[in-house]
Design a binder for these strands. Structure first.
Length: 446
DNA sequence: TCTGGGGTCCTGTTTCGC
DNA sequence: TCTGGCGAAACAGGACCC
């Protein structure tokens, strides 16, 4: 999907179409998750600090991500993919590999192109959004092709043309080559894929280590026979929070770790999992990050056990100077929930039931603004008794500004209300397409 | 106003058990 | 009983991806 979160917001909010839209964390330490193509013109990019984005594009619309909304769209798209083949490997909400041969949906370049174009049309019909398709003989090449295809395009790499196409490209084009590896290679005089191929496997292994060197050499030669794997099992579950201001109070640090442990366990349980290894993550005031882990005798999903392990791990960490991020994770997952008898015996009468209530805490008075932002987050849908459906354009100073429009409407008017206006309430997103169920998918992949 | 959150994989070192 | 060696886990850190 092209600029997925931003495109979804534009489809949902007519007044934002054709405008610069930036989706990401709006706090003082937020970063950009997705920028619309209009915002990219100003130089706004994913992973950029929000403050920098605001300097580059002060007039863009800034919205917090609505993952539930994006997930619903993602599921529609994934359903279309499953109609093509049982072998679908999702990489994220907005990207997946599909093995068209395994689905007998395509067998040569011509049929593949046909399937790809039909898929793009179906995605547009069902979701109202544009998607791009990369077609090639391997996962690596399909990924590169899809990057080339964006936005709203299709690129097919003809068998036999791979090497010629890849050769002049930057090493950074290859999946797995990020800033660090890119620099490393550049210092060795390797900047293009051709340079990589020329360097030879031994040299790359010497430079980058066994696994990475070997993999990169294979990729440079366009060799990639990794299969498309459907439904890979999760290997870890984790939660983390970056705080708007560093936490110095050791007691508060401890409390936050407990909350994170509870949240992590809630997610673990929701997935029907338990795990053996508890991981604590601490990012200090200077951005130095460290992890501490402890492996239990057996898997657990007991909140008291995870809390206690996390607390023990925290004991071994020096937090003087303050922490900006805390995280708690569980790995070494068991796909079945095995009773942890030892822990149950130890925690008898101590373990409190963790509820799905969420972990609301009392808000100190000085965090009034934060409360408002949480109750009326920028971009979230609302309904007003008189004016109907709209979305929060901004809030503060006891006021919330709402634009009244729906995916199918003309750009709407703006009105401002008191944050406690009884006529105003949070609402669910409206579907982007009138009748999302009525679109025919039959024939796709036949 | 410098740098999110949720993951995966790999590597080097230490620890542990046989 | 002491010691050595070895391999597997465990642990910590880092790169990368969306």
């Amino acid at each position: 999907m092209d600029a997925f979160y931003a495109s979804a917001e534009q489809a949902s909010k007519p007044s934002l179409r054709g405008k610069a839209v930036v989706v990401g964390g709006l706090g003082p330490r937020g970063v950009v998750a997705t920028a619309s193509y209009e915002a990219r013109v100003f130089g706004v990019r994913s992973a950029m600090p929000m403050a920098q984005a605001r300097r580059l594009a002060p007039n863009a619309a800034y919205l917090v991500p609505r993952f539930g909304f994006y997930r619903a769209i993602s599921e529609q798209v994934m359903r279309l993919l499953h109609a093509l083949s049982p072998l679908v490997e999702p990489l994220s909400l907005d990207e997946a590999f599909v093995d068209l041969e395994a689905g007998e949906a395509a067998w040569d370049a011509t049929s593949a192109r046909l399937v790809g174009e039909r898929l793009r049309a179906d995605i547009r019909a069902v979701t109202g959004l544009t998607g791009s398709v990369g077609l090639a003989a391997s996962k690596m090449l399909a990924k590169i092709a899809s990057e080339e295809a964006k936005p709203d395009g299709l690129v097919l790499i003809e068998p036999g043309t791979e090497r010629a196409m890849l050769g002049p490209m930057s090493v950074r084009t290859l999946p797995g080559v990020g800033p660090a590896t890119g620099d490393h290679l550049r210092r060795a005089g390797i900047t293009t894929v051709d340079d990589l191929a020329e360097a030879g496997e031994d040299e790359l292994v010497r430079l980058l280590g066994k696994a990475h060197g070997h993999a990169l050499h294979a990729m440079a030669l366009a060799h990639d026979d990794r299969p498309v794997v459907a439904e890979r099992e999760a290997k870890s579950v984790s939660v983390e929070d970056t705080y708007d201001v560093d936490i110095h109070d050791r007691l508060r640090v401890g409390l936050e770790v407990q909350r994170l442990a509870d949240r992590c366990v809630r997610r673990l349980r929701a997935a029907g999992l338990s795990g053996r290894t508890i991981v604590l993550k601490v990012r200090r005031y200077d951005f130095s990050t460290l992890t501490r882990s402890e492996t239990l005798r057996g898997p657990t999903d007991d909140p008291a056990v995870v809390r206690e392990a996390a607390a023990r791990l925290l004991d071994s960490v020096d937090t003087t100077g303050g922490v900006r991020l805390l995280g708690v994770g569980v790995s070494g997952l068991a796909d079945y929930t095995q009773e942890d008898l030892f822990a149950q015996a130890a925690g008898e009468g101590v373990a409190e039931q963790v509820t799905d209530e969420g972990d609301r805490r009392e808000e100190p008075a000085e965090e009034q603004q934060a409360v408002v932002e949480r109750r009326w987050p920028a971009g979230h849908d609302v309904r007003h008794a008189e004016f109907g459906h709209g979305w929060v354009q901004g809030s503060g100073l006891g006021r919330v500004t709402v634009r009244f429009e729906t995916p199918g409407s003309e750009p709407g008017r703006v009105r401002t209300f008191r944050v406690d206006d009884p006529d105003l309430e949070p609402a669910d997103p409206l579907p982007l397409v009138e009748d999302a169920t009525g679109v025919s998918t039959e024939g796709v992949g036949a």
